[in-house]
């Protein structure tokens, strides 16, 4: 299948391992990503709070280009991009006057036909394929599936592909990869999102509570599908320790990396060495657990060592 692809700024920067692992797994799932031509920033957490129109028009430019490319749907792997694109689509469809203002600003004849898909929605539709290709199922890996805020709420924006208070798609995807999701409480709590730089103390408080709960539930790793969640939970563990809010090392994986490991894809290809908290413990547990290629996964420690 072919699907439009909106990478967003983070997947080309701080979270490039998210794009690396996504591209590595879609090849095995018979899916082709068609990048939105000359895409621009969705405005993320800054535009919508400064100008409502800007917060809609910036994502709408990308949806308009996708429409001109003839793409019926676009995957936005970043949860924040997904929320901004899906929210723009929703608001424009609900408000004809806003639709007119946006078209005036864009100077495009945008008809708002492009559906916006989250990574959970897309991978949920590929569960059979993920299962079939899990040559290295992650049998012993206990994962805490962390949704955060924007992947499943509000339901008016997501269209309700999953339950906003009790979602299950990420657990289902991880199970298909052979991992064991733990039951825990903070999977829908906010990590502190865009306040990472401007109010680090809040992020430390919120993200440490999430990690502690995952640890108490017996998780070997936290799984995310958002660059901001990843940055706050992985990169900020150092700040959490420094401020006495957290002890230990909790690997934080992108969902696409979990699927990629189960396919036996080389850890370097999945960007496993780009994390701040080493993923060696995860790779050691999963190496050769299945019938698949243990050799690929064994090079992981070296990869992580290179940069760690």
């Amino acid at each position: 299948m072919k699907i439009g692809y909106f990478p967003g700024c983070s997947l080309h920067g701080l979270s490039r391992e998210y794009e690396e692992s996504l591209k590595a797994i879609v090849a095995g799932l018979d899916t082709e990503l068609v990048e939105v031509d000359d895409w621009s920033c969705c405005g993320a957490s800054s535009a919508h709070g400064s100008s409502h129109l800007l917060g809609v028009a910036l994502p709408a430019r990308n949806l308009a280009i996708a429409e001109e490319q003839g793409l019926p749907e676009v995957l936005a792997p970043c949860a924040a991009c997904y929320a901004r694109l899906a929210s723009a689509r929703h608001e424009i469809s609900e408000d004809p006057q806003l639709a007119g203002r946006v078209n005036n600003v864009l100077v495009r004849d945008f008809k708002n036909t492009v559906r916006v898909r989250s990574i959970l929605e897309v991978l949920k539709g590929q569960i059979a394929g993920i299962k079939a290709r899990a040559t290295n199922p992650l049998k012993d890996l206990k994962v805490a599936c962390y949704y955060g805020c924007l992947l499943v709420r509000p339901v008016q924006v997501t269209g309700g592909y999953d339950d906003p208070e009790d979602p299950s798609s990420m657990e289902d995807i991880c199970k298909a990869a052979g991992a064991v999701p733990v039951k825990w409480n903070r999977r829908l709590d906010c990590c502190g999102g865009g306040l990472s730089m401007s109010r680090t103390g809040s992020v430390v408080r919120l993200s440490a509570a999430i990690l502690k709960d995952a640890k108490a539930a017996g998780a070997d790793a936290v799984v995310v599908a958002c660059p901001m969640c990843h940055s706050n939970l992985d990169f900020r563990q150092k700040a959490m320790k420094h401020r006495g809010a957290w002890e230990g090392d909790m690997p934080v994986l992108f969902l696409t990396q979990v699927v990629g490991m189960s396919m036996g894809i080389d850890p370097k290809t999945l960007g496993m060495g780009r994390h701040f908290v080493s993923t060696d413990s995860v790779l050691a547990r999963t190496a050769g657990t299945g019938s698949g290629s243990g050799t690929g996964t064994n090079s992981a420690a070296a990869v992580a060592g290179e940069v760690g």
Binding site: H48, P154, V155, P164, G193, G194, L195
Partner: peptide
Amino acid sequence: WLCLTCETCTS
């Protein structure tokens, strides 16, 4: 200004 737009309230 501290609001994170996590959408919990709206949800």
